[in-house]
Amino acid sequence: MNIPESGSLHDCRDAFTSTLETLAAQNDDIVAVCNDSVGSSKLGRFRDKWPERLINVGIAEQNLVGVGAGLANGGKLPFVCAAACFLTGRALEQIKADVAYSNTNVKLCGISSGMAYGELGPTHHSTEDFAWIRALPNVVVVAPADRIETAAATEWAASFTGPVFLRLSRVGVPDIFSDGHRFEPGRANLLRQGTDLTLIANGTLTHRALSAASILAEKGIEARVLNMATVRPIDRASIASAASETGAIVTCEEHTIYGGLGSAVAEVVVETAPVPMKRLGVPGIFAPTGSANFLLDEFGMSPRGIAESAAELIKNKA
């Protein structure tokens, strides 16, 4: 693994909560709702500043999401924060009926998504949430890649009227974007130009995909790299051009390969410009014991692993 030294890695939760505090200082209607997760959602400072605007419903995720929908109906702007695994798994029907179908202005913030809880095991992994939530109409699904995109996406979510699922991690990632970056929902970011194939990633995988592209360049393979934070609505145009212009696509995600980013990309590829693809992610198993970074490496998503899959895939190009 050649991810940067730990000194330059950042926990995106900090960017999320400090942005939320900045927004809350300007907008009295912003409230944070949590399920006994003040610490893990990093809402301690928010609670100290606005104790009455931190609504802790206790360990009760169905009520958590329902209360969020009700707060929105009553004119509040709720950021509903909980570990992504419990938020999406335990309260999926509330997300469907009370938030998506009712089309309420609720921001669902899935903290410690993917395999961030590593050694705690598959009960605490949230590696199905893209699939579950992107199947629901009305909800914008976003997985930011670094602290700058996290802040920008949080700011955007507050400005947007409608349901949003912000999928956040606690696993440290390096900065990819520069200060002042503006988040555009449904628009992929071209991080590296290339013509031999395209690597598409989001969340904790974007920086790994960028490192993989450097490894590939040493071998004379020029990979395009797209950061695709928004999984729904997916950026069809960027995917279609990547397919037609580079002829092969590798997707990387901290999620099962069934129904997530890779599937969303593949849906567009088969409908627009079919090309060889490789979907990297959790390969349809409950993960063994290990940290998130260990498991990502194990599942072929170290920068070297991604590069190897890419080099193998382009042999199948037409």
Binding site: V31, E52, R53, I55, Q62, N63, V65, G66, V67, G68, A69, G70, L71, A72, N73, G74, G75, K76, P78, E93, Q94, A97, D98, Y101, S102, T104
Partner: peptide
């Protein structure tokens, strides 16, 4: 109609959120 119901056990949590919103706004 204030919220979409159908699956049972949804209305009361949403109503709690509504009442909490009114309380926060001193409405």
């Amino acid at each position: 109609v204030e919220t979409n119901t159908g699956p049972l056990g949804h209305g009361l949590p949403v109503a709690v959120g509504m009442a909490k919103a009114a309380r926060l706004s001193n409405a």
